[in-house]
Amino acid sequence: MPTGSSGTHQYPHRAKRIVTESLLQRIARGDADAVKDCIDRYADLVWSIALRLTPSRAEAEDAVQDVFIDLWRSAERFDPSVASEPTFIVMIARRRLIDRLRRRSRRIQPSELGDIDPQNSDETPDRAAISEDAAIAAKALDELSKDQQTVLRLSIHHGCSHSQIAEITGMPLGTVKTNIRRGLIRVREILESSRSTTEAAS
């Protein structure tokens, strides 16, 4: 994931500087090259998200095609004052993938994910390698309760349903939902606050 100053990001494993500003806006304007650029820049990110939210690699291969069509069509809805481009991309991708999962009535089974340790905090991010929004979200995670961190990781990272999380953690379903909701609200508040601060400073 990218890092860097506003509008620019760097992927350490690619060791090249990438300008992320306004790619989706270029697509919305009909810039033909931007569509290909979108694949070059975000294919791996979308692929990684698809692998989390599809029950098989074959499904993921199908799903990414749908995701990118959605991205191109949704490009005009991107507002850089509201979210970073990678966050918008992941949001559209997740919606599409979750939609597919629901339509197929086929959730990812925990057994397909290998052993899940609900308390595992080793899955902490390399904060030098993520986007600005993600870096803020990573800090926001530290402010959440352990239970909130756990249910959000199982839901968003492992693709577990709320019922599956209740089974894995032993929490009542209502508690799972409450922790997810409150955790997301807190992360959202911190993201908005940070964005407002940045805008005020610029």
Partner: peptide
């Protein structure tokens, strides 16, 4: 879109975890 964006930011966080299956280091 508010909570979708929060979830998307968190998804980006988790995908950046070193060695995580599906991390961006795994190319399409």
């Amino acid at each position: 879109d508010e909570l979708d964006r929060a979830a998307a930011a968190l998804a980006s966080v988790y995908c950046s975890a070193p060695g995580a299956p599906g991390a961006p280091s795994e190319s399409m």
